[in-house]
Design a protein around this nucleic acid. Structure first.
Lengths: 103, 103
DNA sequence: ACCGTATGTGACCAGAAGGTCACATATCAA
DNA sequence: TTGATATGTGACCTTCTGGTCACATACGGT
């Protein structure tokens, strides 16, 4: 899941699918500086991570974004690191740059 | 940033620092099945990604978690994929399994 | 049936990433 | 200052990853 998000091309593909869902491989291919094989691999990674779901329509394969797992990351992981600190987080950066006294 | 989060060891290190901040390399080393060199590399990646900030204290180097960039991901990226879909997201999975009509 | 189009598979290669080690430097304490 | 402790550096190796290609299959239209 995190590994799927680690690659910029895959994030771009997610962005493309976010702006318009249900595209085929061919439609996505033209948007990226890469052969369709590379795109295929990336889509496969995204699909295995559950970030993208697909549906065949004839000889075409339609790709849809799946917000569920992203929501899970949001709920289970991101919040863990934000909620607890967010109160003291007026400007942690400044605090650190001046003098990191306590924490 | 995403690449920094992609490795399980680094997420573990973040977890450790989350539970208790300001640890030294040696303190973190004993928690992980790895030599200190490996841990050092991972901490370096986390630091370069801005997820961890450090402060020297004598011969020790203290590591602190930095919630700021995680918050940025939350605000700039995660929300983009959740907010828009979250209304129609009672159970997208079922919707897809039965028949993906529109979106 | 045939041709064009859309997608799939496996081999292959270069480079990045994860991990270890020998060696080096810096600090504390006696 | 001498020794023990804490961290740093560069070389090195192995495995994973990103990307391409030759070839194969599947479907649609005419």
């Amino acid at each position: 899941m995190f590994k799927a998000l680690a690659d910029p091309t895959r994030r771009l593909l997610l962005d493309l699918l976010f702006s318009r869902d249900g595209r085929t491989l061919g439609e996505l291919e033209v948007e990226v500086e890469m052969t369709r094989f590379g795109v295929m691999k990336h889509l496969r990674v995204l699909e295995e991570a559950g970030l993208v779901v697909t549906r065949r329509s004839g000889r075409e394969k339609l790709h849809f974004i799946n917000p569920v797992p992203i929501r899970l990351v949001h709920d289970r992981w991101i919040d863990k690191y934000t909620e607890r600190h967010v109160a003291a987080l007026v400007d942690v950066k400044n605090e650190l740059e001046s003098e990191h006294v306590d924490h």
